[in-house]
Design a protein around this nucleic acid. Sequence first.
DNA 1: CGCTTGTTTCAGAAACTTGTGAAGTTAAGG
DNA 2: CCTTAACTTCACAAGTTTCTGAAACAAGCG
Lengths: 169, 169
Amino acid sequence: MNESAGSGRDPEAVSRFVESFAAQLVEAGMTRMPARVFAALLSCDEGSMTSAELGEQLRISPAAVSGAVRYLAQTHMVSREREPGSRRERYRVHGDQWYEALTNRENVLKRWEASLREGVTSLGADTPAGRRMSETLAFFEFIEGELAALMERWRAHREKTFGRGGPQG
Amino acid sequence: MNESAGSGRDPEAVSRFVESFAAQLVEAGMTRMPARVFAALLSCDEGSMTSAELGEQLRISPAAVSGAVRYLAQTHMVSREREPGSRRERYRVHGDQWYEALTNRENVLKRWEASLREGVTSLGADTPAGRRMSETLAFFEFIEGELAALMERWRAHREKTFGRGGPQG
DNA sequence: CGCTTGTTTCAGAAACTTGTGAAGTTAAGG
DNA sequence: CCTTAACTTCACAAGTTTCTGAAACAAGCG
């Protein structure tokens, strides 16, 4: 039997955690398969698994793995690696990459802001509704401005607590 | 016709904005009807509408309004008012109430943290996977700590820019 | 006390999402 | 150059979700 995903740990406890954590991600809006794959990757010591390993642990078809991984790669939550001299692909979580992706809603924020600006125009800047939109817009602009500083503080905090790079950097 | 929802504005432009803004909310994870109702309320000058007005503007059944409004009330994004001496109900957005609700993911954060703590145990605190979980947990704890301060800064910023209470307080 | 008007609940139809099997594509290794 | 292993794409079936019409339910008003 291979050791790549279960050496020394209680595989059942790990699996329970993977599923419950994935459920949280689903509740937060992620679709099920990407959530499960992501949770599985986070929970393995190597931080990376092959398609076959993922399929075996999660009991899903290669097609499901493929779809989940495509989504995760597009959203920069995992990266793909090819081990040279084999056509096996490994999918890897980059340690900090993933929660930075979580906060990197900048694109989302930008779209919201654009939408709100349009709203201020449609509703009339001098109407009560228009003023309400303006304030909402200001809120998002404020958040966007604070985000970068927040992440900077986090990096400093992490370095102090965990040392450079953090786990599995 | 009544003036309550469209006085002086181009109703078609307003409707276009309502739908496009609702689409953004849907993309961010909200279900369709609550998103549309919420967008409509945000876009009317009074900041409140009756069930009938909502049904007419959005072309949806009373049942759909009822369901959407129940969800929005449960999540504190609108409040219900009864105008005395009538059984018409008005649904109202409280100006700032709604985006505070957006950031009040504290419950969500708490659950994530609990889940992650469980993960550290399941995986073993001294394993690479366990250390990765610890760092993720630390990240969420950090964010949680910063959130309150962030909202405080926003309130100060808003007061400076818009004056006390903001639009339609 | 019953009428009228507004809201909620519920069962079901329609639409959408999701995961699978099977066929297709690419690339390593003999 | 052919075989074989791994990944991807596609059509479809199963399972959910979602909105509606109809009926039940409440509450003001004559």
